[in-house]
Each structure stands twice: as C-alpha cells, then as structure tokens.
Design a protein around this nucleic acid. Structure first.
Lengths: 225, 225
DNA sequence: TAGAAAGTGGACCGTCAAGTCCACTCCTTG
DNA sequence: CAAGGAGTGGACTTGACGGTCCACTTTCTA
C-alpha cells in the first residue's frame, strides 16, 4: 500500500496529529472523540480514516510518537550540554519552565497511563523515550566525570535513573495537584546529590553538601494544596 | 434521601466498589463499562444506580477514595515507624514489594491520570493522599533528627517531597515499562541521600556517602526494556 | 491536457454503554 | 403478621461514537 503522500496530504496528516494531540492534552484521550478531532482540525472523517486506516488506535499511536519526540526536543539544547554545573541548572530551569507553562496537561501522563494496560505500541514509544532520556542524563554525568567535576565512583546510569524518576514523579504530582514545587525540589535535590557526591574532583561542590539552593524558593509549603 | 443502609445494602455497596476497583486496575477505567462491573460483582444496573445515583461519576469517586485509603494502609506499619535506618529499609522493601506484586496495575495512575483534567473530586482525593503521604515521610525524618540520626539542618518537608516524587516517578516508570528498577533506585538514592546528609549526628551514615547499596542489584540495565 | 491517483465532504450505519423504569422479593419493625 | 421501605432483576430507551461508503474535487504525471 502506497506510502504515497503528496505535500498537501502530508500537511493534512500533520494538522490532524497536532490537533488531536492538543485535544488529548486538553480534555484527555477518553474525553476526545474522532468527531472532535475532525472539527478541531477542519477535516472530515474520510480524511481521518484515509490517513489512519486503523482508526482511533492508529491515530493514538501517531500522536504518542509525535508527543514523545517533542518531549526531548523541548529540553534541547540544554539536555545535550550537561558539561558544567550552570548547564545543569539551565537544564533544570528549562524543564521546570516547560512544565510550568504547560500547566495541567501532559502528553506523557496522558499517553502512558491513560491508555492503561494492553497497548504494546504505546508502551514501546514510552519505553524508548525513557531510555533516551535517561541515556542523555547519564551522558551528562559521564561528561562531568570526564572533566573531573564529579567523582569517578558515581554510577552514572544509576543516578540518571533516580533523577529521571524524581523528575517524572514531580511532573505526576504537578498534574495531580497543580503544584510544581515537587518537580523543582526533586530536580534540585537530585542535582544537589550529584554535586555532593563522594570523590568529587574538587571544586564545584562548594562545601561538603550545600546542594543547589539557588533556583527554587519553593516547597517549604510542602505537599500543601 | 436516606443514608439508610442496611447491613446487606452496605455489603453490596462494598462489593461493587471493590469489584470495580479491581476491574479498573486490570483493564483501565476507560476499558470498563458499568455492565462489566455488574457482571463482575454479580449485581444489576438497578443496584448500581441505587447506591450510586449519579452513576459512573460517583462510582469512580468512591473507587478513588477506596484505593487512596488502601495506598497508605498497605505501607503500614512501616510508614509510621521510620525511627531507624533498618526501619527505613523495611519501608522501602514494603513499597517495592507492594508494587512488584501489583505489577502493571496501579490505582494511583489509573485515578490520577486516567481521569484527565476536569474532575475536582478526584483531584482532592489525590491531593489529600499525597499530603498525608509526604507528611508521614517528613515525620519519619523529624523522628530521625530528634534521635540525632539525621542532622538538624536537613529540611524534612523538602526531603520528603523529593523522596515522594522519586517514589511516584519510579512507580510511573514501572507502569510504563514494566521495570521496577527505577523505583528501587529512586528510593535507595533518596534514603541514601538522607543518610549522607550533612550534619548527620554521627554514625548510621557509615562512610561519607556510601548510600544504600543493599536491596536492589538492579538498574545497571538502565532504562532498558 | 487528459486520466489516474490522491484528497475531501458528509451522510449513513451498527454497536455499545449509560442511565431509566417498573415489577418484584426480602428484610425489619411496629 | 402485615405494611412499608430497602434491595434486586432485567428489559428498555437514548444518544454518542467509531467506522463505512460513495460521490465529488484537486493534484500529479505522462
């Protein structure tokens, strides 16, 4: 079957995917019908099924991929340049800023949890995203080790995993409560732990474990509303 | 309208809530119809609407509350006795064990994300849960401080927030990927950071920052499948 | 420029699930 | 024991939503 897509066709397809993504973020997957997508993207059912013959399922997969790609993109170039403490801070700020701007919506949660069990395709997309994400964080840690700013005894993959988990949890809590403080704290504490890591080359860590108090003033309000 | 519930009626109501909770966990909220609930709980539509006049919405709320209550219960008594390092380890093991056993399902994610935006009631339930959860962790940290096992300069609420975020993220990643290693690492690193905290009373922390290497051997496989 | 292929509009259909209704049974209490 | 209310069964209504179909237009290409 042809992958024959004219310029116009491709544009339409893109329009549908982007529009659907927006609706999913805004109203949730369950709360969005194909008719909604059609209306929002000024297209008709026939177009939708023309580009996504398998219907809703296929559209969901396409949106998932689209959103997953954006997640890492939005962290660039900071995520690829974790070679100094200010750079880590910049990345942290970028992540916080992105999710703060995004507010209550979130492609990740929407696609990960909202589909529930039983969608191997989506699972793969999310697994791939997490893997690449963690990989990039770990690369940053290794770069810091290479330049002596983090001690060699630190397990980069392990720390990256913990940091990613904290980040994800922060986002999750933000989605549930509307508060972004947990995300900030999780990142700050995670990066702080990195700075305070044993065997740190020399400077950079300041005192023994001063952590990264800079950025966020938040969180004394704890888990509050 | 009466809160008149006979013993029998209460039992039926309970049966419906518990059955629905199980279905939601197994197939997701979206993938579960009221008819499914009826069949699974050996009850009829009229019963369902007798106990939940507002229908699906109200049932969802009841299940959310039910599940939220269970979350903290399942961590007891460990969660209320975080007064020594072994106790923290015990709690950590309990959490990991619980989620490992639970596998791909999860009331939290199901209820938090799957409802998407726009359900104030559920939001409240989850917010309350997170608050209590963080509170209990913070209480544990304070208890450790009171007995001199953690230095007084540590901000208990802040650390508890970060730990909770890591935990949540670990669970989220587990749901998405099936791997539990991130949860283990997040907890181990979080508790490890606590042990290594500056100004720690004296012992307990072992070396400067050896962290808690015990439990998990995992995670070198990174974000892998 | 003509014809084929891609793209488009929108009516239409079948299914399925939420919610309604009413007749009926069973408990409980005076 | 009888009457009233709680509890129960299941058929029925209604509407929404995923998906189909076909006539029509636009765009490529030989």
């Amino acid at each position: 079957m042809g992958a024959t897509l004219t310029r116009k066709g491709l544009a339409t397809r893109q329009r549908i995917v982007a529009g659907a993504a927006e609706l999913f973020r805004a109203r949730g997957v369950a709360g969005t019908s194909l008719d909604d997508v059609c209306e929002a993207t000024s297209s008709s059912k026939s177009q939708l099924f023309h580009y996504f013959p398998d219907g809703r399922t296929q559209l969901l997969a396409a949106v998932a991929q689209h959103e997953a790609d954006r997640v890492l993109e939005d962290q660039q170039p900071a995520l690829d340049q974790l070679t100094s403490w200010p750079a880590w801070q910049a990345w942290r700020d970028r992540v916080v800023g992105r999710y703060r701007a995004q507010g209550q919506s979130c492609p990740l949660a929407v696609l990960t949890s909202q589909l529930g069990p039983g969608s191997p395709e989506h699972q793969e997309v999310v697994v791939g995203l997490f893997r690449r994400w963690q990989q990039k964080i770990a690369d940053g840690i290794r770069a810091m080790q290479a330049s002596g700013q983090i001690g060699p005894s630190v397990d980069a993959d392990r720390r990256a995993g913990a940091l990613l988990a904290g980040l994800q949890g922060g986002v999750l809590i933000m989605l549930a409560t509307g508060e972004i403080s947990h995300l900030e704290v999780a990142l700050d504490e995670g990066i702080g732990a990195l700075r305070a890591a044993p065997g740190a080359g020399r400077d950079g860590a300041g005192a023994s474990g001063a952590a990264v108090r800079d950025g966020a003033g938040a969180v004394r309000d704890g888990g509050g509303a």
